[in-house]
């Protein structure tokens, strides 16, 4: 009977370090270890409701809360920006529940949680990047049923995904997938890298850093360990290409080697700024 086991414990439900109760953390941890052992494979877990809404990073938050240390330095970004609504909210939550230090400097962070971007600055083997994931299933685009996509992964049957890309080329002369670009991980599993732009996909390949992906609403966790092959799906005569910023530079720091946000000015013209605000600040300093 469970009652006795619980009565014998002395856990305090209120004010626990890092918010989540022990059971939730352990569930996430077990899933993370499996995820790392099978790179790119989506491990199911019993995602808990968080005080932030589904779709606002609950998967990433659960991962971070399961491993956070009091001496961690945490950076949270949303679309590359440290000051975005969602990032600010999540940081407040970590400060309150785990009393960690917060930074905007990629180099100083031990754990970075992100939505839709990977920082420009190269991350090291002492850092972990936690990515928030809305759609963990790369094959959902071509198959709505979870039972079917699971079978496709089991059999490494990715023919329909390839066909999808091929049809794009035939119809549009281009692969239309802009972000969430499907990748093959460790030569086996096709993975959704989360809605990072294509610009960031090469950063996953043979990196020094551990990448953890959390999809709270869909109850999935997956990972790319360091030094792991991550290859975007491409054809020999139609290579994967990142976004084209040729001839453009950041109007703030002058960078020509970063992902640029396009800003519409009041006079109708366009100007560009670095999407990675921390990196941009650092270059200007």
């Amino acid at each position: 009977m469970r009652v006795r086991e619980w009565m014998d414990r002395d856990t305090a439900p209120k004010g626990t370090f890092a918010f989540l109760d022990d059971g939730a953390k352990k569930d996430v941890r077990r899933a993370l270890l499996k995820a790392v052992a099978i790179p790119g494979y989506q491990v199911p877990y019993g995602s808990r409701e968080m005080p932030l809404a589904r779709g606002w990073g609950t998967g990433g938050i659960q991962i971070t809360l399961s491993m956070l240390l009091p001496d961690d330095v945490v950076k949270v970004i949303d679309q590359g920006c440290d000051g975005s609504v969602n990032a600010v909210n999540i940081k407040k939550f970590y400060e309150r529940t785990a009393r960690v230090k917060i930074t905007t400097d990629t180099a100083l962070a031990s754990v970075i949680q992100t939505r839709h971007r990977i920082p420009e600055e190269k991350m090291t083997d002492r850092q972990i990047l936690v990515l928030q994931v809305p759609y963990p299933e790369a094959l959902r685009e071509v198959e709505p049923s979870e039972a079917q996509t699971r079978r496709m992964h089991a059999e490494a049957d990715y023919g329909r995904m390839w066909l999808h890309l091929y049809e794009d080329i035939v119809r549009f002369g281009e692969i239309r997938i802009a972000y969430r670009y499907p990748c093959t991980v460790n030569g086996r599993h096709v993975m959704d890298p989360s809605p990072i732009p294509r610009w960031d996909v090469p950063k996953l390949h043979m990196a020094d850093t551990l990448f953890l992906f959390g999809a709270g609403r869909e109850r999935r966790i997956y990972a790319v360990p360091p030094h792991t092959r991550v290859e975007p799906l491409e054809f020999d005569d139609h290579r994967f290409r990142v976004e084209d910023f040729s001839g453009k530079a950041c109007a703030r720091c002058g960078a020509t080697d970063t992902f640029l946000d396009e800003i519409l000015m009041p006079d109708g013209t366009r100007t560009h700024f670095c999407s990675d605000s921390g990196h941009c600040d650092k270059r200007r300093a």
Partner: peptide
């Protein structure tokens, strides 16, 4: 105790990742 477990997990995760 909780914090010690957090630290232990980071080591386990590091070990499995590398």
């Amino acid at each position: 105790f909780t914090i010690e477990e957090h630290g232990a997990f980071r080591s386990l995760l590091d070990a499995m990742s590398r």
